[in-house]
Amino acid sequence: MTNVPDVQSKAKATPEDRRAFFKSALAKASGLAALFGMSAKAKAEIPRSEVKEFLDPAVDPQVNHLDRMLEDLERALKKPMEQRKWVMVIDLKKCTGCKACTVSCCSENNLPPGVVYRPVVEEEVGTFPDVRKKFTPRPCMHCENPPCTPVCPVKATYKRPDGIVAIDYDVCIGCRYCLSACPYNARTADFGEFYNQDAPEIMDYEKRPNFEYGREWKRDPKDHGSPIGNARKCHFCLHRVENGMLPACATTCLGGATYFGDYNDPTSLVHQLVGSSRMMRLKEELGTEPKVYYLV
């Protein structure tokens, strides 16, 4: 019977006991580290030389990049709108293809079936054994020369002074000309569908409003009001950005691969990243001048 663990006494372990345990474990670990000539502090840091190809010089691993971007954002919001230029930088070497950005975007904007703002395009490069997956998240490019805005017959979609290509949901007639005109397939149409439309009941989460462009848009299966029937697209989470928050995709990116900020601020993180030699943009040859930059 002596081999049976004393469950009762373990269950009664006090916080003091736990602290003592961790202290002794830490002491043992630091002893081991000392044995191999490493201090506890040095162990927490991975030598830059080992990971330098994954790190852009602009990104300081000691500073949380989200904090830095929030500071950049705060500075940008103090300026008049026309002096800001919102850009996004996506580091493809850091993207793990987890699609947290796609999911958080759907959740943030309460996207219905068939509407997606930021899919992650997957490609397999090479053949076994020299094979790898390439992930390319594809938000709206917010082109400097957007091909989608001049085609709109009613001026419902337009480029804002801060560079964001927006849609006026109250005006869009749903002709879908802009969907045809986008060279990135970045626009989708809202067909008024619900995930549970064939189920006995449409769930409450599907009827939650979204707050795109800073307004409350209700979603009612009986009412076909906007944004149902409209063209929809990524707006860099304008409703969050203008309230001092980062876009949902940037906040939730597990690999820390998505950066967002004001390109017109030379001290901003995105400004530094865009200067990287790894920078490329999609379909540069079309002259659309996307404001989404990729680091390859």
Partner: peptide
């Protein structure tokens, strides 16, 4: 019948965008 918002067709007359071939 193809329009997402059939009731808004008149906007092509009230707020046309003449850069658009559709307008």
């Amino acid at each position: 019948f193809d329009l997402g918002h059939m009731g808004r067709f008149y906007e092509v007359f009230t707020r046309p965008n003449f850069s658009s071939m559709m307008a």
